[in-house]
Amino acid sequence: MHTILICDDDKDIVSALDIYLSSEGYKTVKAYNGKEALQAVDQNDIDLILMDIMMPELDGIRATAKLREGSNVPIILLTAKSEDNDKILGLNIGADDYITKPFNPLEVIARVKSQLRRYTALGGAEKAPGLLSVGPISLDDSAKLVTVDGEPVALTPIEYNILKLLMTHPGQVFSSAQIYEQVWNDPAYGSENTVAVHIRHLREKIEINPAEPRYLKVVWGLGYKMDKGGI
């Protein structure tokens, strides 16, 4: 039973999120600006904070910075600002994730779950040998098992091999041809489209929002890579 602080100056959004999160079994605390959020954190035992950026009195960025002075509670920013700069600023100031408005409530719940799992259940990840992990994604090559935030994901052998290739070299960009040659063990003769399709399927399975992947990224015109940063 986790307590989630919902902080947004738009009351309808707060109550909508309240309904979703309550239906998922979370306890919620509501706040309507940054100051109230800080008070609520003082008064309650909060496990996760959903925070809007543009708020009166004290905005989300400042409130996050204040909270980070004495707490490592997961903070997810809700923002109408979709510019990259705002995301980067929010994450640098201490937020753990962000969701842009208008958001899909299911994505919010998925992200909340993901953050809570990492915060409570997984704790600091102790690395087992033979275990590859990038962000919330873990690949156990001995068990041929892939988990995201501890939840197992079902992959086809090709998808598994692609993911393994990318996760063994995090940050490195592989072109479609390279992936094809290494995974299929065949020279690539215009079969790159197949790689793209498989990658997209893979993305849909391991990313919360496949349209905006955080980890399995497309480097347009160059190839694909596994990104540790998570932005």
Binding site: I13, A16, Y20, A80, K101, P102, P105
Partner: peptide, 11 residues
């Protein structure tokens, strides 16, 4: 902002 509410409540 209002659109967020609409989408949420429709859901």
């Amino acid at each position: 902002t209002p659109l967020t509410s609409i989408i949420n409540y429709v859901n």
